[in-house]
């Protein structure tokens, strides 16, 4: 099962600044939705709102047609347990790979045997078989980010949130992660919302692409239209490389 996502008039303000202004979009079940935008556009801000880590200043977020109104810890946990999230900056617990990947299952009360099986499967998926007993401090950047992806995947999320998951990786590692995402999309295992500043990645992965500039969502389209006949002149400027980042 996967969830649909709908965002309406979403804004995030901080005292001196508007980080997001009136953002609207919808993501269907099992769709891969890629938000593209230069550094500082507000991608992380948006993803954090979707993972319910921050509270919007205005607007609505709906998962599976249910609006999130109740930001009590209990309700947030209930929803987050359906989500997997990979942060832009790799963060791992100071422990072995196995314990890192098993964490989400452990707090869900999964029994040890199942955990062991699932961790093994997911590590194979991110090509880290045999890394169970390695301490995370001994991993390369790419390996570490793949562990982070495995952490998010092992709980079999209905919605996968990825914040520039390949931004700091070499091409080989980036490709590995893209493959995993494509695999999830192909098997319709989860709805995926990911951000990137890489147009080619968006082209390769997206069912739908959205451009975020300065906290505003400029255009949402299929990749074909977005990259070939963009409606908004700013989109054209962006894909032609005239908006630098």
């Amino acid at each position: 099962m996967t969830v649909s996502v709908e965002v309406q008039s979403l804004s995030k303000l901080i005292p001196q600044k508007t980080l997001l202004r009136d953002v609207n979009f919808g993501v269907e079940e099992s769709e891969v939705f890629v938000i593209i935008g230069p550094n500082g556009a507000g991608k992380t801000t948006l993803i954090r709102l979707l993972d319910l880590l921050d509270k919007p200043s205005k607007g609505r977020i709906k998962f599976a047609n249910t609006e999130i109104k109740d930001y009590s810890p209990e309700n947030l946990v209930k929803w987050r347990r359906k989500f997997g999230m990979v942060f832009q900056r790799t963060v791992l617990f100071n422990a072995k790979v196995y314990d890192n990947v098993a964490y989400g299952l452990k707090i869900r009360g999964t029994d040890d045997e199942t955990i062991e099986k699932k961790v093994k499967t997911v590590l194979k998926l991110v090509r880290l078989s045999g890394f169970e007993q390695r301490h995370v401090h001994t991993l390369s950047g790419g390996e570490a980010q793949r562990v982070a992806l495995a952490q998010a995947l092992v709980i079999e999320p209905e919605l996968l949130l990825l914040d520039e998951p390949t931004a700091n990786l070499d091409p080989a590692n980036a490709m590995l992660i893209e493959e995993v995402i494509l695999n999830i999309a192909r098997e319709r295992k989860a709805t995926v919302i990911m951000t990137t500043h890489n147009m080619f990645q968006a082209k390769r992965l997206a069912d739908k692409v959205a451009l975020l500039l300065d906290g505003e969502l400029i255009e949402t389209d299929t990749p074909e239209i977005f990259f070939n006949q963009p409606k908004d002149p700013r989109t054209l400027a962006f894909i032609e490389g005239k908006i630098f980042f």
């Binding site: 880590l53 989500f83 791992l92 617990f93 998010a152």
Partner: peptide, 22 residues
């Protein structure tokens, strides 16, 4: 970020606090 990491993996506030303590 450790606390948010735990939360994002479905931890309750208490479980996230334990992750930080660890």
């Amino acid at each position: 970020a450790i606390r948010e990491k735990a939360l994002s993996l479905g931890a309750t506030n208490r479980e996230a606090a334990f992750a930080v303590l660890k």
